[in-house]
Design a protein around this nucleic acid. Structure first.
Lengths: 139, 139
DNA sequence: CCTAATACTTGATGATGTCAACGATTGAGT
DNA sequence: ACTCAATCGTTGACATCATCAAGTATTAGG
């Protein structure tokens, strides 16, 4: 494994600061849509037309499966998500967005991905560089 | 206000993906130190030797003041944080890390800021660029 | 002084998260 | 085919997180 360069450490520290700052501003944003931060996270993970098993959701959220049960219960009772039994394995239940859920997800992503002023102040050249670097980072 | 360029939107969307990915991996990391994610956030915000009023903590966390009371109660009962009455204004209570709290904070930051493999794979040139761009972003 | 505003706490309540135990289903041996 | 372990989701118990409304103490303004 390649050793961590000082620049890599600096970069990651900055990303952590950004992460905590973002963590603090998710609750107000979520509240506008009558959602909790956790529900936003779930909605972000269920892509329209891409059903996902509950177990996989639990794994991606890195939380207990029983927690997903409760989260989905509340989203389902609001008509945003549906449970379907899987055809291949009758133990697993697959999650799907309802049309209302899909609309709300779009709304959420629109608000979340509105870049803050500090990002818009960067030059286009820097913005391109950032996109390129983050893409590699997320592989 | 400068309009949001397509690159800015792309970049911010990627940062949101990174944010949610990081949100998912905080709980396991916190659990190793017997902390909750929220407690990690608090510990991250209280810098050693830089006492901070509870109200300011609530504002930075973007949460209700009564929530901070509970968070600090638990941290204080574990001997990580102390409450001091402010000398200037006897209504405010100022928070301070104990030596144990300071040690745990260092441990936390060490683990959190260990850059992931994907970041170490970037060229030094790219790492530098990332640091420069993120620094501007956090202003 | 009297009053309004501020800083924190308390109590009630709902959401988030873990763990242990359970029913249903699947899969691997035998 | 039959048994037994493993897997998937749910349930119930419990701690934590988070909000709101109300309360106490202190400060600041008129």
């Amino acid at each position: 494994m390649k050793p961590a360069s000082p620049h890599a450490c600096d970069a990651w520290q900055l990303l952590m600061q950004l992460f905590f700052a973002q963590r603090a501003n998710l609750p107000p944003l979520a509240a506008e849509l009558q959602l909790s931060p956790a529900q936003c996270h779930v909605l972000h993970l269920i892509e329209p037309g891409r059903p996902i098993p509950m177990g996989q959701l639990a794994e991606t959220l890195a939380c207990d499966a029983s927690n997903v049960t409760g989260l989905v219960d509340r989203l389902e009772s609001r008509g945003l998500v549906r449970r379907h039994p899987s055809t291949e394995d009758r133990r697993v239940k697959v999650l799907d967005l309802t049309p209302a859920g899909s609309r709300l997800r779009t709304l959420l992503l629109d608000r979340m991905t509105a870049p803050p002023a500090s990002l818009r102040r960067l030059s286009v050249r820097e913005q391109r560089a950032l996109v390129r670097i983050l893409t590699q980072l997320l592989d």
